[in-house]
Every structure is written in structure tokens, then in C-alpha cells.
Amino acid sequence: MNKIAGVLIIILALVIGILPQFTDCQSQGKELTLTTGKTVPMKCHWTAIAEIGMAVPLIAQGIMLFLSKRKETRLALSVTNIILGIFVVLFPTWLIGVCANNMMLCNNLMKPTLILCGALVIVIGLITFIMAYRKVESVA
């Protein structure tokens, strides 16, 4: 089960890291035009960059979960997975956000995908936590 969870975390981390790079407004050739004529990236672009920062540790977590044999290690990995999953959800919804128009790709594809992936990381983290916790208890 832990091996499956490890592989799932790696797959989700890849989606979290890669998908936003192709669904933010910058990748669609859209930039914000200021009245001065200068163009700047929209905020969904910064969310996409921040998610790379979440995906890299998640991949490492997934690999460690796949290889770990000790229950205590799995317990610790599960807790950090849950925390990372929460931040994956928070970046597009609260900490940075995406563009306001819900007809934009960043709003109707990037944001829900990140929420879904983040939620799945949290659920997997909870399941591996409960399983590791039970085993630690029964050993004690």
C-alpha cells in the first residue's frame, strides 16, 4: 500500500508541477497591458511558479515513501505530505490566486486541477498516516 501511495504522490506531484506551466495566462500568450503600454505577467503565473516549489519536495516525499520501511518514517512523511497538500490548495485559492475571469484557462482548469491534486495528496497522506499510526501502536 505504501508503495502505491508513493507512486501516486509522485504522479500527483508531476501534475502539480507541470500542468500549471501550460495552463497559466503567460503560456497562453496573455499578459496584462498597463496604461503605459508596458506588459506584466498576470498573478496566475506566480501561482504556477510557486507550485513548482511544492512539486519538487512532493516528488522527494513520494520517493521516500516508496522506499521507506520504518513505520515512524512513514508517519513523518505522511504529516509533511498533508502539509504540502494543504499549500498546493492554498496557493491558487488564497495565498496568490488566479485571474478573476472564470472563463480563463487558469481559473477553470489550472485552479480546479491544483485543488483536486492537493486534496488527493491530503487524502493519501491521511490514509498512510492512519495505517502507519495503527502499526506503530500495535508494535508498542
Binding site: 496573455k30 499578459e31 496604461t35 485571474c99 478573476a100 475571469n101 472563463m103 480563463m104
Partner: peptide
């Protein structure tokens, strides 16, 4: 307007 800073929401 689309993607213009003078409009809060693009193509509304």
C-alpha cells in the same frame, strides 16, 4: 477589453 489593465475583468 481583453487583458487590459483599464478593465478589472477581461472580455466581460
Amino acid at each position: 477589453l481583453e487583458n487590459a489593465s483599464c478593465c478589472s475583468v477581461s472580455s466581460m
